[in-house]
Design a binder for these strands. Structure first.
Length: 575
DNA sequence: ATTGCCGGGCG
DNA sequence: CGCCCGGCAAT
């Protein structure tokens, strides 16, 4: 089930601290990417990759059977909890399903113990290891060292020991090409004939077998898989090497079996971007390990990252040493814990929130949030596309309740309708009062939920009504006034009485019963324009036009327009 | 204080 | 629905 190239595991064993650091960085990105749905879609093999991540960051010895039997969620938590460890050397892959995890973590080895022979298990998950790694049966090999180009080694040549520099180390053939300093020639010999030129105070040879954990079931490590001492700083593993691991990581061993030249981390390898090469989450991904995702909820359905996953993850990965008691799962731990994608209610708006610690910015679009994360938080690292899509990891969806609805009190129409159709025909009566709480002293109907001056709350400028102020004998602009009181509006009939009280802005036409005035009504056709928003919350702004009162004076009240007389909005002198 | 007019009552 | 007015907000 876990298709981890064995060589890779072994390779992980051989990593220097520097390399580990590099891997941590890179693998973080891997995991981040993997976890994201895109990664899945692009064929990343999450289990394998994460396993490797764990291997590298924590040390393979922690790979208990339970771990190997991981399914989906638990792995997530494993990752989140375990990534803090980064011990490599002396780690073991523990074995057969059912085997108990090693009771004793060997963390200490990390800090200076001698390298451990690598022990692998017969776990089915390892069955697909590349052959060249699987073959070696002997644990007794003198030396399990990976030779790196440039490394100073001793070699038995011509019956004597000579020193030389490693040219390359082919794991596949178990051969090491060494440039002999003495003879100034290049030889190719078996790996076991070569050993590291000893840096002072260090033994090139394999340390004593690891205590205890070596159950019979464990498949011994091939001795041509070299496990250099952790402190073998002779060759600094650089990022390129990390990249190579990651490159391998992104490919199924079945499809791409790591050739020996690759496994030995030959420096001749170009230092090209591994993600581009084979692992770019966004573009390729060579193979998927089928079935690994099947257990998790995230397979086929979009699943946004767990809100807290990233910070947690980061924190764990780089920080805290933690007690290491196996791979128990942590329910809230990781991304894949996320259940099925949330359903969105119609009234709920989905926003995207930045998860970067103490940021919390919320944006409306994915693009926006990605840009934000990238620009503000990932800024330095994103210059290379290496880490592209990492930003996927640092935001999450949040759902916002409709703001308008929240403010609108009892209104039942929270849905804003920003678009307005052609004004003259747009008569949108509000929905009928949800409940007749208008009973009692209140007016029946609308007024109960349209408190004075509060129209815009229920309909925030999104729709408005055209009304002929019936009561004041106004005419709808598009009416042909047959008689002052005879007009019909198509939609008017639908909401005859309510509209007049609803309209925040009214279109007025001159009352035909008031003969004396020229028709400003003509322009009022289009006065039906958008309501002034600022005013919508209060009563209508006082118009500048003179009103009947002013024109005729209070003493000629009889000449006022009806509306004025009734203390309503003047119908004659429109604003 | 004046003016415009909304909200609402009454017949 | 027509008519009226209390009361508020803008002026």
């Amino acid at each position: 089930m876990m298709e981890i190239p064995y060589s890779l595991i072994l390779a992980c064993e051989a990593l220097s601290k520097t390399f580990i650091k590099t891997c941590q960085t890179l693998l973080l990105h891997i995991c981040n990417c993997i976890i994201s749905r895109q990664a899945v879609e692009h064929g990343w093999d999450f289990p394998r990759a994460t396993l490797l991540t764990v291997l590298i960051l924590r040390g393979p010895r922690r790979l208990t059977s339970s771990f190997l039997e991981w399914k989906g969620n638990s792995m997530a938590s494993v990752l989140s909890r375990r990534l803090g460890k980064r011990s490599l050397l002396g780690a073991r892959v523990l074995g057969p399903p059912g085997a108990a995890p090693p009771s004793e973590p060997q963390t200490e080895l990390l800090e200076g113990a001698a390298p451990q022979p690598f022990v692998a298990s017969k776990d089915p998950s390892c069955q697909e290891q590349p052959k060249e790694v699987l073959k070696a049966p002997g644990t007794s090999g003198p030396q399990l060292v990976a030779f790196h180009p440039g490394q100073k080694v001793c070699v038995r040549y011509g019956g004597q020991e000579s020193t030389g520099l490693v040219e390359r180390h082919s794991w596949a053939e178990d051969k090491v090409t060494v440039w002999l300093l003495d003879q100034k020639l290049q030889i190719c010999c078996k790996a076991e004939e070569v050993w590291l030129a000893e840096p002072p105070g260090r033994s090139p040879r394999v340390p004593p077998p690891e205590q205890g954990t070596q159950a019979p079931a464990y498949r011994p490590v091939s001795r041509n898989i070299d496990v250099p001492k952790r402190r073998s700083d002779a060759v600094e593993m650089d990022e390129m090497m990390a990249a190579m691991v990651l490159t391998s990581l992104s490919c199924s061993p079945v499809v791409q079996s790591p050739p020996g030249g690759e496994a030995n981390f030959s420096a001749s390898r170009t230092a090209c971007d591994p993600w581009k090469e084979s692992g770019d989450v966004s573009d390729s991904g060579s193979s998927t390990t089928s079935g690994h995702w099947s257990g998790s909820s995230g397979v086929s359905t979009p699943s946004p990252p767990h809100p807290q996953a990233s910070p947690k993850y980061l924190g764990d990965a780089f920080g805290s040493p933690q007690t290491d008691n196996g791979f128990e799962t942590d329910p809230d731990a990781f991304l894949l814990d996320e259940p099925a994608p949330r359903k969105r209610k119609n009234s709920v708006k989905v926003m995207y929130k930045c998860l970067w610690p103490s940021c919390g910015k919320v944006l409306r679009s994915i693009v926006g949030i990605k840009r934000h994360v990238k620009a503000l938080h990932l800024g330095d690292s994103v210059d290379s596309d290496q880490f592209k899509r990492e930003e996927d990891f640092y935001y999450t969806e949040v759902q916002m309740k409709g703001e308008a609805a929240a403010a609108g009190g009892p209104t039942a129409d929270p849905a804003p309708t920003p678009s307005v159709t052609s004004p003259p025909l747009t008569i949108l009566p509000p929905p009928p009062p949800p409940k007749a709480q208008s009973s009692g002293p209140d007016h029946p109907g609308l007024e109960s939920y349209l408190p004075s001056g509060a129209l815009s709350k229920s309909a925030p400028g999104s729709f408005w009504h055209i009304q002929a102020d019936h009561a004041y004998q106004a005419l709808p602009p598009f009416q042909i006034p047959v008689s002052p009181h005879i007009y019909t509006s198509i939609s008017w009939a639908a909401a005859p009485s309510s509209a007049s009280t609803l309209s925040p802005v009214r279109s007025r036409s001159l009352s035909f019963s008031e003969p004396q005035q020229p028709p400003p009504a003509m322009k009022s056709h289009l006065i039906v324009t958008s309501p002034p928003r600022a005013q919508s919350t209060t009563r209508k702004a006082r118009g500048e036009a003179k009103k009947c009162r002013k024109v005729y004076g209070i003493e000629h009240r009889d000449q006022w327009c009806t509306a004025c007389r009734w203390k309503k909005a003047c119908q004659r002198f429109l604003d």
